[in-house]
Design a protein around this nucleic acid. Structure first.
Lengths: 152, 152
DNA sequence: TATTGTTATACTCTATAACTATA
DNA sequence: TATAGTTATAGAGTATAACAATA
């Protein structure tokens, strides 16, 4: 069987993940921890509850990830100014710089990849991928709703 | 910032993985175990060493995955006919059927997704994705070679 | 000697449940 | 009562290292 569009899409994601893993090997960073840093860079200082919601993981999981990132000097925990139950997580300067560099690498990679596509194919490619992502999002959401319904 | 092509690609893969996880929730199957089954369906009966090589994971990891799949009735272990060190892993009939159904769902999904793309965009889309996957594969391979070189 | 798969050990991600402090 | 985060516990994926059986 010839690979389908979906197969090519999944291949891209597999390659990307493999490269991430390689890039972080030998450091204390992992894909999950980087997702936390990435989110903090985009949102700014956040409570652990906010991180858990955005990442769609449990509060317990966030505790562990923040523990590790705090130990490695990537984030700081500080008390919330008004809610004494809550903890605010902030990127350290070094981590903020690192994330800025990562973001710029990411943008550069996107350019490099697009550069491999014939110029006249670029616009339809972009439209096509956006359409596929939207359709897939609908399908997944419908499946999740159906699952939630069945569980009642 | 507007999302780049790469962001859209990664969104597709994230949605896909989320749907996989949802589909297997409540069963003993997981993404890793399904990868083993998928591979067995494509390769036919294989030794654990072959599985470890194809999946690019450790022998230990394969032992655990096969243990779980054997317990759940998805695979059988049998002695290798000529090499008494090796174990041959085979899909059970039920698992083979299940994988055939999954493969057909996968093909169907690919059609459904392509259906969301404007007809005149489909060919350039496909060409574009193939080009991106190829370029990314080059980049990742080069990075891996560079890393291996640096480690010497 | 080299290879196949297992046992031993350890780390990470993840979840639920019980609990503490606070709202 | 409800919420934020931690401790306790557990399952799964993954790795390396030591080991047994076999090649």
């Amino acid at each position: 069987m010839t690979p389908t569009i979906l197969d090519h899409l999944l291949l891209v994601s597999e390659l990307f993940q493999r490269d991430m893993a390689r890039a972080f090997a030998g450091t204390t960073l992992t894909a999950s921890r980087v997702r936390v840093l990435w989110l903090l860079q985009h949102r700014g200082p956040s409570t652990q509850r906010e991180l858990a919601q955005e990442l769609d993981v449990s509060a317990r999981n966030v505790s562990g990830l923040v523990d590790a990132l705090e130990a490695s000097g990537h984030v700081l925990r500080s008390p919330h100014p008004t809610d004494r139950r809550a903890t605010v997580v902030t990127l350290t300067d070094a981590a903020a710089e690192q994330m800025a560099a990562m973001q710029s690498d990411h943008a550069q990679l996107s350019v490099t990849l697009l550069d491999a596509v014939a110029p006249q194919d670029r616009e339809p490619l972009e439209r096509g991928i956006v359409a596929i992502a939207a359709r897939l999002a609908e399908l997944v959401e419908a499946a999740e709703r159906a699952g939630a319904e069945a569980a009642r």
